[in-house]
Amino acid sequence: MLTKNLVFALLTFTLSTSVQADLVVLQYHHVSDATPPSTSTSVSLFEGQLQMIEDLGLEVVPLLAGTRDAREESRKENTVALTFDDAYESVYTTAAPMLADRGYPYTVFVNTNAVGRTGYMTWDQLEELASREGVTLANHSTDHGHLARKPDEPADQWQQRIEHSLDGAQRELKQRLGVDTPMFAYPYGEFDSTLEEQISDQGWYGYSQHSGPIGVHSAPTRLPRFPMANAYGQLGSLKNKLLSRAFPVETADLPDGVITSNPPVLEFALPETMTPDRLTCFASGMGRIEIETVEDGMVRVQAPEAFSSRRFRYNCTHPAGDGRFYWLSQPWLDLSQPEN
């Protein structure tokens, strides 16, 4: 018979050696050498990224199932999901054949008003993609608008605008393609707490554009994805992203991304297994920023000066062992800045 001490020791060993089940989601727009660099991944870089995923032995999974698994910690190794925003034509002509050759599943988030316009897929192309094994189509709004409530926008007008954008796109995808996927990608990665409530009320997952993997502590309406355009998807940093771990902080407890002061303050509690001296944080366009330790295991992060952009982030990492890093990204949104 096992003694209580031995049972405890075995349980402790099992917990300490279990591997966190995290999902790394990669976000693309164009896969092309001829489209705007800021939203494009070159063909050669895309091929290199896919090859690195294969070389690392990582499984590519459907986004919906992968998200559910990661939040339930039912897998033992990192998995990867591939997503494409806006349904650009290059995804159909260039990315889709490359992914089919490897048998990789992927998700295309569609803003329905753009379908059929120059540079975008047609409804016939989307229908053909939807019939392929492993391809998922999901909601990216009707008009790719800025959906966070605008300053001084009446609540009833905002509600009407949101219902038209979210429900209208979901309805059209269902009517035209028979698609009713419970996932939504925020245009521009912008969201606020009231928009999150709308996504939650729909029973959807909400995906943004701040970096980091998805894990058991990830809030279902503010799920991160690693942008993979040329500037962010270079192979030199990709391995760390693919092998990263979700930071063990409840992201639902992090601040609403809409700032009330500039620069904003981010506070969160470090787990007992982490130390502030090994935590590294960066601010968009400012590089590494200082970390202040406050009471009760909390740390405070604030950029040294105000931001002038509409969207920016604080990214924090901490060693996770085996050369991997825990990764936390807090997106910020300044509604006083022009929409872009």
Rank of each mutant, 00 (worst) to 15 (best):
T112D: 03
L82R: 00
A155I: 15
Y232M: 06
M52L: 14
V115L: 02
L335V: 13
K241A: 05
S42E: 12
G287T: 11
F268V: 03
E128H: 07
Y188P: 03
Y314K: 02
R149T: 11
F312K: 04
D22S: 06
L50R: 07
P255G: 11
M98G: 08
R68G: 08
N230Q: 12
W327F: 07
Y188I: 11
G145R: 13
S40P: 00
G236F: 06
L195F: 09
R245N: 10
T35D: 12
S165I: 09
S211L: 03
G297V: 12
M274K: 03
G203A: 15
N230I: 12
L328F: 07
N78F: 00
Y326R: 03
R149G: 01
P338L: 02
L242T: 11
Y207G: 02
L173E: 03
W204H: 03
N230Y: 05
R171H: 15
Q160M: 07
P105G: 04
V31T: 13
N113D: 15
G145A: 09
D22H: 02
Y106M: 06
E59V: 13
K150Q: 10
R102N: 12
L333V: 13
A95Y: 06
A269C: 06
L223C: 05
N111S: 14
G178S: 05
A81D: 04
G116H: 09
L173S: 00
G233V: 08
S329H: 03
A81T: 10
T273C: 05
E250F: 09
R278L: 05
L50Q: 06
R225P: 01
K150G: 10
D156T: 15
G134K: 00
K174V: 13
E54H: 13
N5R: 11
E197S: 08
L147Q: 03
A231Q: 10
Y314G: 08
A320L: 10
G321V: 08
D192T: 14
S309M: 02
G145S: 14
L10G: 09
L266W: 03
F109W: 15
P331V: 10
G134C: 07
V108M: 06
V258C: 10
E172S: 11
D156E: 14
V61P: 00
Q202I: 12
Q157E: 15
H164A: 14
G206M: 02
A219Q: 07
R102G: 09
P37D: 08
T67L: 08
H29Q: 08
T14H: 13
V216R: 14
W123P: 01
E153F: 03
Q302C: 07
S200C: 05
G134N: 04
Y186K: 01
E89I: 13
T194C: 05
L64K: 09
S74M: 05
F13G: 02
N5W: 10
Q330H: 03
M121G: 13
P271S: 10
W204F: 15
A231P: 02
D22C: 04
T260N: 11
L147H: 07
P338Y: 07
S237A: 14
T41P: 01
L82A: 04
K150D: 15
S336Q: 11
Y186G: 00
Y106S: 01
E89D: 14
F282G: 04
N78I: 13
T41N: 07
H217D: 12
F191D: 01
D85G: 03
G203T: 15
D334N: 10
T293I: 12
V216W: 02
K4A: 14
F226S: 00
P331I: 13
L129S: 08
E292A: 09
